[in-house]
């Protein structure tokens, strides 16, 4: 019986595709996305509900004009909202924001959460070499904290890290690294401690942060200025964040992550259409979790964050 909730599932609304196409951007699976493909993938693997989001480059500095970015965000969000209402129970949505325009993003947060009843908002891990703890973005996190909102983050490649090694696509190393960077930025700028009510999901088991954990936990001891930014400690913040299992449903990643956080913080995610739900169900099943833990990861943990998806 379909019961799973996928928090890492990408769609490509028509206006997004058009914008990508114009700039010759967009990975082939994004450009070839259809609603039918989403539903088929979900049905094959018992996914009841997918919370949709755009993948990188989402909306960022590449959309050169501010008005165009606002319009694109609005159209994408309207499309995702219609998808959600047209297919009751099958979809939810993380709204895209016209980043890095902070004022326009504040307005889109209001519209998406109040009028469209989005489940949360999407941020990329960075926008043009600014990570999420950057002071420029503070008004956004303050507003999301006031709303106790759900934030889903998706990695991207910062401008300087594109095309570093010709043989190696950025998805192999750079994406995960950027998630670690934005976690570092949120912690050590003090944003995480200042905004305790925002619930943040990090993709791909936290990028590479779990493997580097000691570098994070030792930092405040080495620099007193940073110690004040994490008054409750680094681990306190890392343990209240959420982590999806997309492209990380294997012991080398989860074995490390689960030594830091409890199962309650882990969410099912697939990275569709880049990977399948079926693969993730299979691999998660082989990691050796107890049935109750699998149930928590596949559904119950997400439901705590997404009360509207109770269905």
């Amino acid at each position: 019986m379909a019961h799973r909730i996928d928090v890492h599932h990408h769609i490509a609304p028509p206006s997004y595709l058009a914008a990508l196409h114009m700039r010759k951007l967009g990975a082939p699976p994004t450009m070839a996305w259809t609603l039918t493909k989403s539903l088929e993938d979900m049905d094959r693997a018992g996914v009841a509900t997918a919370i949709t989001s755009l993948t990188t480059p989402a909306i960022g500095p590449w959309v050169a004009d501010a008005a165009g970015a606002r319009r694109l965000a609005r159209e994408c969000n309207e499309y995702a909202a219609k998808l959600t209402s047209d297919h009751p129970g099958r979809f939810g949505m993380f709204a895209v924001l016209p980043m890095p325009d902070v004022d326009a993003s504040l307005r889109e947060i209001e519209y998406a959460l109040d009028s469209l009843r989005a489940d949360g908002v999407l941020f990329l891990t960075s926008y043009a070499n600014r990570w999420l703890g950057d002071p420029t973005f503070a008004p956004l996190f303050d507003e999301l904290n006031r709303r106790a909102a759900l934030v889903y983050t998706h990695p991207t490649t910062p401008p300087g890290c594109e095309g570093l090694i010709p043989e190696i696509p950025e998805s192999v190393i750079e994406y995960a690294t950027d998630t670690s960077r934005t976690i570092g930025s949120l912690l050590f700028t003090g944003t995480a401690a200042r905004c305790p009510d925002v619930r943040i999901i990090f993709s791909h088991a936290g990028g590479t942060m779990p493997f580097l954990i000691e570098r994070f936990t030792r930092l405040p001891g080495m620099r007193k200025d940073l110690e004040a930014r994490v008054p409750h400690g680094v681990l306190h913040e890392l343990r209240r964040f959420y982590y999806d299992i997309a492209q990380a449903a294997h012991p080398m990643a989860l074995g490390s992550l689960l030594k830091i956080v409890s199962v309650s913080q882990v969410l099912f995610g697939t990275d569709f259409p880049f990977r399948t739900s079926e693969e993730h169900v299979k691999m998660l099943g082989e990691c050796g979790f107890a049935p109750t833990e699998i149930a928590a990861i596949e559904r119950d943990n997400a439901l705590r964050l997404l009360p509207r998806r109770q269905g």
Partner: peptide
């Protein structure tokens, strides 16, 4: 360091899962 075992992953099964 105060990092405990997050629990949940049973070692033997985990190792069995090394399909990749």
């Amino acid at each position: 360091m105060a990092i405990g075992d997050g629990g949940g992953l049973r070692r033997r099964a985990l190792l069995g899962g090394l399909v990749v």
